[in-house]
């Protein structure tokens, strides 16, 4: 296939992913909401998971299929430009969505967190949707400053970290919502399949502890790349500054948990705060910021 055919193929695959993740989203939504069973005999709603189990499994298979196709879309995009597929915001976004989905599948395989499929599928949909509509750029080679193996390493590490940070944020947000329900009484029926507060609390911590070294590495790889491109490994341009702030925020989170013993709500808020600094960097600094990190028209 020629380069431009490959690029078109990649775009088509992204559209296919949009459809598949939509199905995944609907299946997960169905799973959580349809388990409610209204019976007249009791004033309490009962629920029955047996009839939604298939919807849940459908959701999972769609997540797996969608992630697989996203891999293909991402790889063909890279092949069409003869380089790694993370040279501009469009490509960061599709690769980032892929990492988010992959982080979910990993967490699913390990901790059976199918309920997370709902927020993850909607996040992937939103990311891919904005990518293909607002951020789309035709496939093209890189400007010289971006031609470095460190680019590939640095950006890949950053995107994976970002995906996992987002999942951790979703878990922490779920924790906060569930906690509110439990403080007021009990969880609504659709939420009963979601793990205990304790498990949610642990899960978001583990996700962060798991990628924090990778994020540290991403920042360092970025510094090495900057050194070879600009002559200074750290110039405090807005992107670097916010990467540092994110790093400090997560370090604070880890310390708060491990050495001060924060748990539960306070830890969840801190986790969400740290994740927001990452999102802020990604969205605000990439688009409106100025500095050395402004890429070829996004």
């Amino acid at each position: 296939m020629s380069s431009s055919n490959l690029a078109y193929f990649s775009n088509d695959a992204i559209y296919a992913c949009l459809a598949i993740f939509t199905i995944a989203f609907l299946a997960h939504a169905f799973e959580v909401s349809w388990s409610v069973k209204n019976t007249e005999s009791s004033d309490k709603t009962e629920f029955d998971f047996s009839r939604t189990n298939r919807a849940g499994r459908l959701g999972t298979s769609m997540m797996i299929l969608g992630t697989g196709i996203l891999v293909i879309a991402d790889v063909t995009r890279g092949l069409s430009a003869h380089r790694v597929p993370w040279g501009n915001m469009y490509e960061f976004s599709i690769t980032g969505a892929l990492m988010l989905a992959a982080a979910y599948l990993f967490a699913f395989a390990k901790y059976k967190v199918r309920w997370l499929g709902l927020p993850v599928s909607i996040s992937v949909l939103l990311t891919l949707g904005t990518a293909i509509t607002v951020l789309y750029r035709p496939s093209a080679p890189l400007v010289p400053a971006l031609k470095s193996p460190w680019l590939a390493i640095h950006v890949l590490a950053a995107i994976i970290s970002g995906g996992v940070f987002l999942v951790a944020n979703l878990v922490a947000a779920t924790f906060l919502v569930m906690e509110r329900y439990e403080l007021k009484g009990e969880r609504p029926i659709w939420a009963r399949k979601i793990p205990s507060l304790d498990a949610l609390d642990q899960l978001s911590y583990r996700l962060v502890a798991f990628v924090f070294p990778l994020w540290t590495f991403a920042v360092i790889a970025g510094a090495i790349w900057a050194e070879s491109a600009w002559g200074k490994y750290w110039s405090w341009d807005p992107k670097e500054t916010w990467a540092f702030i994110t790093w400090v925020a997560y370090a604070a989170y880890l310390h708060a948990r491990v050495t001060v013993g924060w748990r539960g709500r306070r830890a969840a808020w801190l986790c969400i705060f740290a994740g927001s600094t990452f999102l802020f960097n990604y969205i605000w600094v990439n688009i409106w910021g100025t500095g050395l990190h402004t890429y070829s028209g996004l």
Partner: peptide, 13 residues
């Protein structure tokens, strides 16, 4: 101090 350093870095961006 570490947190402060993070906060102090913000105006520069």
């Amino acid at each position: 101090l570490l947190m402060l350093l993070g906060v102090a870095a913000i105006p520069g961006s």
